[in-house]
């Protein structure tokens, strides 16, 4: 089961919720898709880190072959190509690596080169497999890194399932053990733009984290529109809850959105978080809070599956 955690703005507590959900599960994968500033690893402190570089394909022109027909220039929907003073000019930062220019070139004058745009780090933190996407500073789009992360997550899930199946056939799973699907928590980038859409596309459930302010409820509205558009089952976590009116809670009631947890704006949790500790691993009461949240999500997903079938 894949749970995407998202919010309309930064700083609402996506990472707090994500790392604690992953830590509260028996076994989970935590995927940091906030590739511009991934920070889940600061809390999970994964070990046995393996790094894989992520490349993008960028066109290169063979000037001896290029006849200046401009088919590629006219084709490019992002206008990454221009033909000036008898030469094809390629704007690498604008290119979306669709490969169309190369495909349409009648002279075979274009080919592709690899351009490094970032990396993926995988590691282990107790019960959690940690996957972190890191976009190089100055790169325009981290979408290829998010895609690679999701692919990598699926590969690991398959490996895990094969291992589970092998264990079961050897009876290691024990009598009465039900095969539980592995949990993947996707920590999304803030906002509701392309990188978020990419991050939630494979998710079974979207968890929206919101702050108790007017601004917070506006941002909740944005991500709510997004997950509705994507027809994703969703629920809300109200973070930093205080006494008094909560505009995000009012929004939830207005749209009949399930509120799966209310996290108090408490000093103790804030202190643990500021020390980059995982609350679930430090305090029983937080383990209960996030275990109960996870349980509710599992129930919501099961309910959605029944309704959807």
């Amino acid at each position: 089961m894949k749970i995407a955690v998202l919010s309309g703005k930064g700083g609402t507590g996506k990472t707090l919720v994500s790392v604690n959900l992953a830590a509260a599960a028996k076994s989970a994968a935590y995927m940091d898709c906030d590739i511009e500033e991934p920070n889940g690893h600061l809390f999970l402190k994964p070990e046995k880190i393996k790094t894989a570089i992520v490349y993008n394909k960028i066109p290169v022109v063979d000037e001896n072959r290029c006849t200046g027909c401009r088919i590629c220039v006219d084709f490019c929907k992002f206008n990454a190509l221009a033909y000036i003073s008898g030469k094809l000019r390629i704007f690498e930062d604008i290119c979306h690596s669709c490969g169309g220019c190369q495909l349409f070139c009648p002279e075979d004058a274009l080919w592709e080169k690899d351009k490094e745009i970032g990396k993926i780090e995988t590691g282990v933190s107790e019960n959690v497999q940690v996957l972190t996407g890191i976009l190089n500073t100055g790169e325009a789009s981290g979408i290829p890194i998010i895609n690679r992360l999701l692919e990598r997550g699926s590969e690991m899930e398959i490996t895990q399932n094969i291992a589970d199946a092998a264990n079961e056939s050897h009876g290691i799973g024990g009598i009465g053990s039900t095969k539980t699907e592995k949990l993947t928590v996707i920590d999304c980038p803030p906002g509701s733009a392309c990188s978020v859409m990419e991050s939630i596309k494979d998710a079974d459930y979207c968890l929206l984290v919101a702050e108790p302010t007017l601004f917070g409820s506006h941002n909740l509205r944005m991500v709510h529109e997004l997950v509705t558009l994507f027809k994703k089952p969703h629920g809300v976590v109200l973070n930093k809850c205080l006494e008094g009116e909560n505009p995000s809670e009012i929004f939830c009631k207005e749209y009949s959105l399930p509120i799966l947890a209310k996290i108090p704006f408490d000093h103790e949790l804030g202190t643990l978080n500021s020390k980059a500790l995982i609350a679930v691993r430090e305090q029983e009461k937080y383990r209960k809070l996030f275990s109960s949240l996870l349980q509710k999500i599992v129930e919501e997903v099961a309910y959605e599956t029944v309704i959807g079938s």
Partner: peptide, 18 residues
């Protein structure tokens, strides 16, 4: 014709000028 494009309008507009 660059006015309505999704991105890179400056490049396309400059191409028209060139």
């Amino acid at each position: 014709s660059a006015a309505a494009t999704q991105g890179g309008a400056g490049i396309k507009a400059a191409q028209i000028i060139v």
